[in-house]
């Protein structure tokens, strides 16, 4: 369940229609999607160097061909129960845009699933969850009778980086 999945998946769609492609992954039995154009690469889980005094969901940093890339565990981020990393556990490396330019960050998910084409009009706005934050959900899409939660990765991952530059050191 890694790169070959990407290539084999059905990508033959008329590019002119107003559809977006999403890479989906599994997290605690649910299927989540991210804009495929943001995906830089998918790699297997490997050990990380942890960073002191950071929230638990920041697993640490890895060396991605000379670049230091932070890794966020999405299960931790969503306060889901942790499971041991296994054979299908992957890191999806994403390009994240923020006010301060672009970042490259990785997310740890249970497994990658598929690539879907979703027409813009098929995307439903997320219902009001009430107490639960919906800031990080772009919308809900139905693909083959299943629900896919499309994530707003910029908001999600930038919120993971809390800028505390002006702390004790300055």
């Amino acid at each position: 369940m890694s790169e070959p999945q990407l290539i084999d998946s059905n990508t033959s769609v008329d590019v002119m229609t107003d559809t977006d492609q999403y890479l989906t992954f599994i997290l605690a039995g649910e299927e989540y999607g991210v804009d495929i154009l943001r995906v830089q690469e998918i790699k297997g889980w490997d050990s990380v160097t942890s960073i002191p005094n950071t929230p638990d969901y920041i697993k640490g940093v890895i060396n991605l061909r000379g670049t230091i890339v932070p890794i966020v565990d999405l299960r931790d981020r969503f306060s889901l129960d942790a499971i041991p990393y296994g054979a299908t556990t992957v890191v999806i490396v994403l390009k994240v845009t923020s006010d301060n330019g672009n970042r490259t960050m990785g997310i740890v998910v249970d497994a990658v699933s598929d690539v879907y084409n979703v027409a813009t009009e098929e995307m439903k706005p997320p219902p009001d969850f009430g107490t639960i934050s919906i800031d990080y959900v772009k919308g809900l899409a139905t693909v083959e009778e299943k629900m896919v939660i499309v994530l707003e990765i910029d908001k999600l991952l930038n919120s993971a980086v809390i800028d505390h530059t002006d702390t004790l050191l300055q």
Binding site: V61, T67, I68, P70, T104, M105, I162, H164, T165
Partner: peptide, 10 residues
């Protein structure tokens, strides 16, 4: 570290 993450104390 700041390129993709942020400043870390220490």
């Amino acid at each position: 570290l700041e390129t993709n993450y942020q400043r870390v104390d220490g």
